[in-house]
Every structure is written in C-alpha cells, then in structure tokens.
C-alpha cells in the first residue's frame, strides 16, 4: 500500500465521519444508520495507519498485493450492506403500501358512513313531514 493511497483513505474516512456527525448534530440522520458508516470509516483509517495488518492478511489468504485485499474487503462489506439495505427497502415499501391502503380504506369507510347517515336523516325528515 503506497503512502499516498493511505493518506487518501485516511482523509476520506475523516470527511465521512465529519459529515455523518454533522448530519446527526442537525438532527437529519438517525443514529442507528450512522453507526455502520462510523465503524466503516474507523476500519479504513486503522488499515491505513497500520498497513502491516493488511500485509499479514494478504499473505494469509495468498493474494498478490495488500491493496487488492483492501479492495476485496471494501467490496464485500459494501455488498453485504447493499444486500441488507435492499431487504430493508423492500420491507419499508411494503409498510408504506399497507399504510397508504389502510388510510384510503378508512377514509372510504368514513365517507360511506356519512352517506348512510345522510340518507337516514332524509328518510326521517320525509316520515316527519
């Protein structure tokens, strides 16, 4: 891992962390969602500050260069995150659908009730006349 690459990774992690913290500070992001990115940025920094960790891991899995190992790790992590987000996304969409349907149906039922009431009132008035 080259020196410049390590610096880039550290700066990228720092910017990510700062941005996430800023969003939380202004109450624009839920803490549950921030934690993944903070850990991710922290890991990238650790890898950049202690490249020996990566070098050892690279040898252990028999890869050519540490940077490939870093890429692989990052890609795997992001793929898992993406996969989990797809599942969450799907669940959210389903909830939204259920909510919208329920709201519309309740509204419809209320309209029907109002209609019935009005008809009842009219027939009552007719009888009174």
């Amino acid at each position: 891992m080259g020196f410049i690459l390590r610096i880039i990774l550290i700066i990228a992690s720092l910017i990510t962390t700062l941005y996430i913290l800023r969003r939380i500070r202004h109450a624009k992001l839920q803490i549950e969602y921030a934690i993944f990115w903070l850990i991710f940025a922290g890991m990238l920094s650790i890898i950049s500050i202690f490249p020996n960790l990566m070098i050892r891991l690279t040898r252990a899995v028999g890869m050519q260069s540490p940077i490939n190992c870093v890429f692989l790790l990052v890609i795997f992590t992001l793929m898992i995150k993406l996969f989990m987000q797809t599942i969450e996304h799907s669940q959210l969409e389903d909830k939204l659908k259920q909510l919208t349907q329920r709201l519309a149906i309740e509204e419809k039922l209320r309209e029907e009730e109002r209609e019935e009431l009005r008809e009842l009132k009219e027939s009552l008035e007719k009888v009174q006349k």
Partner: peptide, 15 residues
C-alpha cells in the same frame, strides 16, 4: 455495541 459507540462517541457531537 450500538449503545457504547453512541454514548462514548456520537452523543458528544449532538446539539
């Protein structure tokens, strides 16, 4: 893990 990261780190930056 969530609670510790949140208490020790994140909460210090909240307004």
């Amino acid at each position: 893990a969530r609670m510790l990261i949140s208490i020790l780190f994140i909460q210090n930056f909240r307004k």
